[in-house]
Amino acid sequence: MAHRAALRIAEIVRPLSVAAVVFSAAFLAVTASNSYAAKCDKDDSCTEDTVVLGNNGAILGSSYEVFAAGARKNTKATHEVKGNQTGLASPSGVAITPDAQTIAIANQLGGNVLVFGSGATGNSAPSARIGGPTTGLENPAGVAFLPGNDIAVASTLGAVVDPGGGPPPTGICDPAVVGFSLGVISEFAAGSNGDVTPLNNSPVNGGTRNATIGGCATFLLGPTGLASEPSGKLWAANSFGGFITSYAAGASGDAFPDNIIAGAIAPAFVAVGAAGTEIYVTDLGDNSVKIFDATTFGGKLLGVISGKRTKFNSPMGIDFVGDDLYVANNEANNFVMFDDDAGELDLGGNIRPNVIVRGKHTNMNLPTGLAVPHP
Rank of each mutant, 00 (worst) to 15 (best):
residue 62 S to H: 11
residue 265 I to M: 13
residue 334 N to L: 14
residue 241 G to T: 08
residue 327 V to H: 06
residue 113 V to T: 10
residue 184 V to H: 01
residue 202 S to H: 03
residue 256 F to M: 10
residue 347 L to G: 12
residue 161 V to T: 06
residue 204 V to P: 03
residue 310 T to C: 10
residue 71 A to W: 11
residue 199 L to W: 09
residue 370 L to G: 03
residue 4 R to Q: 15
residue 131 G to Y: 05
residue 177 V to W: 07
residue 113 V to Y: 04
residue 131 G to T: 08
residue 335 F to R: 06
residue 99 D to T: 06
residue 344 E to I: 13
residue 169 P to Y: 03
residue 188 F to S: 03
residue 154 A to Y: 01
residue 27 F to V: 13
residue 97 T to D: 00
residue 305 I to W: 04
residue 289 V to N: 03
residue 155 S to T: 01
residue 313 N to M: 11
residue 203 P to R: 01
residue 286 D to P: 00
residue 123 N to P: 06
residue 29 A to G: 14
residue 303 G to W: 08
residue 231 S to E: 02
residue 17 S to Y: 12
residue 17 S to D: 08
residue 244 I to F: 04
residue 342 A to S: 15
residue 107 N to F: 08
residue 179 G to C: 07
residue 198 P to W: 01
residue 356 I to L: 06
residue 95 A to P: 08
residue 157 L to T: 03
residue 362 T to G: 07
residue 267 P to R: 13
residue 256 F to A: 12
residue 55 N to A: 06
residue 243 F to W: 15
residue 117 G to Y: 07
residue 326 Y to E: 01
residue 368 T to N: 15
residue 117 G to F: 10
residue 360 K to Q: 11
residue 354 N to H: 15
residue 23 F to C: 05
residue 77 A to C: 10
residue 236 A to T: 04
residue 52 V to H: 13
residue 208 T to Q: 06
residue 180 F to E: 05
residue 129 R to M: 13
residue 4 R to F: 15
residue 25 A to R: 14
residue 217 A to W: 06
